[in-house]
Amino acid sequence: MQVGQTVVQAVSRVVDGADALTSQICRDGLAYWQGLRGDAPLPWREAIDPAAIRSLLPYTFLVDVVDRGRDFRYRLVGTDIVAHTPHDNTGLLLSEIDAQGTQSQLSALYAAVTADPSPRFQRIAYRTRLGLRSWYETVVCPMSAPDSTGTVTTLVGWAEHFHQPIGSADE
């Protein structure tokens, strides 16, 4: 989301099945995470194989949990996500990003996944300066480190953006 855009709706929920997701990218990301997890409570961050999710990489983000969920650092932000934000947030703490407009919703989402380690999805609808009604869907999944005793240390997620001209027949 760019500066000057207005959030008009935000929804965040636990994923109770892939059919709750609109985005095929988010569905594929969730299926990948579920495959990594197997029977374990949480998959390890090191289990991610970029070659296995090559088509999802532009829509993928990795977030380090900082200070047990008091903040979050973007480790990786896919190119499609970067194209829809004012800056490449890779390496930044969520608390350092002030031009995005959705920090409070993202902070709440990331904190919820960290506190109750289950996948959650979020949809945020907004209106742009360019006359588009836009929204994005994201799914965020918890991961741990081998030595973390099941504590959420990393979040992996996928996001897809959608745009529609305001005043179109589908409005």
Rank of each mutant, 00 (worst) to 15 (best):
A10R: 12
V11S: 11
S12V: 06
V14N: 02
V14T: 13
D19G: 09
A20D: 15
A20L: 09
L21G: 05
T22D: 07
Q24L: 10
R27E: 06
D28N: 14
A31V: 09
A31I: 03
Y32C: 07
W33D: 15
Q34R: 05
Q34W: 01
L36T: 00
R37W: 12
R37N: 08
D39M: 13
L42T: 05
L42I: 11
W44C: 15
W44M: 12
A47S: 10
I48S: 08
P50I: 04
S55A: 10
L57H: 08
L62V: 15
D64S: 06
V65E: 01
V65R: 00
V66N: 00
D67F: 01
D67Q: 00
R70M: 09
D71S: 01
F72H: 03
F72Y: 08
D80T: 03
I81Q: 10
I81W: 02
I81R: 10
I81P: 05
I81D: 05
I81F: 01
V82E: 08
H87Y: 09
T90K: 08
G91I: 05
L93H: 09
L93E: 04
L93C: 10
D98F: 06
A99L: 04
A99P: 01
Q100N: 15
G101D: 12
T102R: 14
T102A: 15
L106C: 11
A108E: 11
L109M: 12
Y110R: 00
A111Y: 08
V113A: 04
D116C: 05
S118F: 12
S118M: 12
P119C: 06
A125R: 14
Y126N: 10
Y126V: 10
R129Q: 14
L130R: 06
G131L: 03
R133C: 12
W135V: 01
Y136A: 05
